[in-house]
């Protein structure tokens, strides 16, 4: 489908050139059950120094979108475009992609235990990350920098922890090590995939605080992939909501939280329990998300949508800008007929 109504530069976005630009990104996995269309045409801009949250439930395609951008998906058909400062990343030769990945754009994963090598010390792993991009660095230099990095992510006794193995560290400390690795080569974009989901709430607060500080100090662009709208409220400037492999709404955090436009976003926000209120927990979204193997015709959310009309099952809606955000919904934002 052609972008009909809007360029996906959202309401209230910074005016600079985007540093990361996704256009009609599509990812299809070949499975025994047939092609699974995990990402179905995502267009998104990430501007310098901003924090963008990509929100959705399990299976919405939020992680796959970012993994495809970095060429980290094997055996998937990826089409569309993802450019970093004008360089096309999709289809880029692995040797050239490696200069971008881990250096200009780096990623922090959800589970720090499975993403760290259990048989190498923290210092050795940091050393490898640095020397992959700066082969001329001496061991002495990488060691000094490793200690400095651990210090920056607020690990006490950094020199000693440099010689520790991952199992000797707590979950929160491991995630700090992951963040140290991600910033080791001074990237411009940091993609954090559910960085706090496996952590306790006070540790989660520590990690989000750290990410926020690094983002401000280094003018990083942060892409925060999460299912937790609470985390989004405190950490992101803009958010993009995904459902069944598509963006269904994006806009600035204050406006989307104040006036969610898409019925799915409304449902998500309505069913969230709040610490500061009692008795408002609603089962707002009946049913379960569709399988990427057999998507319903028309709008993928229509079978669960309280506002759905017949037309919703006939045409898949396109993103249309409203007064407060940009949504893909034929009921709340009918596309202007452009012919």
């Amino acid at each position: 489908m052609i972008e009909q109504a809007v360029a996906p530069v959202p309401t209230g976005a910074p005016t600079a050139e985007p540093i990361l630009r996704l256009r009609d990104l599509r990812v299809t996995f070949d499975t025994v059950g047939g092609p699974a269309r995990a990402v179905r045409g995502v267009s998104l801009d990430v501007f310098p120094g901003e924090a963008v949250a990509v929100v959705g439930e399990s299976g919405s395609g939020k992680s796959v979108t970012m993994l495809a951008t970095l060429g980290l998906l094997r055996g998937a058909a990826v089409s569309g475009s993802a450019t970093y400062r004008g360089t096309e990343l999709i289809g880029l030769a692995p040797s050239r992609l490696r200069h971008v990945r881990g250096a200009k754009i780096s990623m922090v994963f959800q589970d720090p235990m499975t993403s760290l090598n259990p048989v190498l010390t923290v210092g050795r792993q940091l050393d490898m990350v640095m020397r992959a991009h700066n082969p001329d660095m001496s061991k002495k230099a990488t060691r000094a920098r490793a200690v400095d990095l651990l210090d920056q992510v607020a690990i006490a006794q950094a020199a000693r922890r440099c010689d520790a193995y991952p199992h000797e560290l707590s979950g929160g400390m491991r995630q700090r090590v992951m963040i140290a690795m991600a910033i080791a080569n001074e990237p411009e974009v940091l993609i954090a995939d559910e960085p706090t989901t496996a952590l306790d709430v006070t540790v989660q607060a520590q990690i989000m605080d750290l990410l926020g500080r690094l983002q401000r100090e280094r003018q990083l662009s942060l892409v925060l992939i999460t299912h937790d709208l609470g985390v989004v409220a405190g950490a992101a400037d803009r958010l993009a909501v995904m459902y069944a492999g598509k963006l269904v709404e994006h806009g600035t955090v204050p406006s989307v939280f104040a006036e969610p436009g898409h019925p799915y976003t409304r449902g998500l926000l309505a069913c969230l329990p709040r610490l500061d209120r009692r008795g408002e927990m609603q089962a707002a979204i009946p049913g379960i998300p569709p399988s990427p193997l057999s998507l319903p015709p028309g709008c993928p959310f229509a079978p669960r949508c309280p506002d759905a009309v017949t037309a919703c099952t006939e045409h898949e809606p396109v993103l249309v800008r409203t007064a407060t955000s940009t949504i893909a919904c034929s009921v709340h934002a009918p596309a202007a007929v452009v012919r």
């Binding site: 709430v201 006070t202 989660q204 607060a205 520590q206 989000m208 605080d209 937790d228 709208l229 609470g230 985390v231 989004v232 409220a233 405190g234 955090v253 204050p254 939280f257 104040a258 926000l269 969230l272 709040r274 610490l275 500061d276």
Partner: peptide
């Protein structure tokens, strides 16, 4: 105070303690 509240206005103004 560490539990995020899904409301940017509240979240910005509330007092948080990072242990």
């Amino acid at each position: 105070s560490a539990v995020p509240i899904p409301d940017p206005a509240v979240q910005e103004s509330r007092r948080r303690i990072v242990l």
